[in-house]
Design a protein around this nucleic acid. Sequence first.
DNA 1: CCACCGTCCTGGCTGC
DNA 2: TGCAGCCAGGACGGTG
Length: 271
Amino acid sequence: MPELPEVETYARGLQPLIGRRFLGARALWLRSVPTGPDLLGPRIAGQVVIDVARRGKYIVFTLSDDVLLVHLKMTGELVVAPAAAPPDPHARVVFDLDAGEELRFHDPRKFGRVYLVADPAQVTGALGPEPLADDFTPQAFAARLAGRRGRLKSLLLDQTFVAGVGNIYADEALHRARLHPLRPADSLTPDEQVRLYDAIRAVLRQGIANRGTNLDWAYTQGTNQDVLRVFHRHGQPCLTCGTLIERMTVGQRGTHFCPQCQPLLRLEVAG
DNA sequence: CCACCGTCCTGGCTGC
DNA sequence: TGCAGCCAGGACGGTG
């Protein structure tokens, strides 16, 4: 499931497409293109790639006239291949590039989406702040937490709260911040708020430095799976304290945590 | 604002 | 060995 670090790695890897021209496109699975599968090819034909970037979990191709956004969801991949290469049975959208190549959107589970729009805000307008941006300060984070009574885990997964955090990095950030996933968001002390802020940025930066987390899916060359401390480690000892990592369901999401390092009730230690 | 549920999909897993 | 059935997972829409 590509999250911010994986999508960032993708966007960086696609930089060589800058300057290339789309000649056309075809949607092989119509629902993959909510903005109109039939319009995609005629509209993108002739447009040149000006920039490739990331916003939240979206890959954003700025084109000469429009903006192409791709959300990989869980199993999506983007691959540049020679047009003569063997067809991909899981290709959902195929873009014709110049120089006899194709950009293939491959997605076995068909959850990913491709949007071609004039204004990217049509797709990304509701997203929360970028957690690694300079203007995302501890004060801004604390202000967003204020009055939110929901559970931390659910809030971290809310893309309108902070953009780009998914299940892996939410669990990792909470463990690093020593906060239980069920803690009400507005119950954090100032120290805990700063710990969570620092932890979110640290795990995302580490993920980017490691070129993403590569679990059951082979689409990244990332190594971040080697440094995960709780995600998918239930039944194994916590790397901090040795207590067995537990798994629970929070908001329909598998959630992994250390009951010792992340107590639900803060222990009042007599001074 | 928040909780919860259904929907979309299919590969991979479990259990028999 | 084969097959049926279940489930994860991000985002969104609907409901209470």
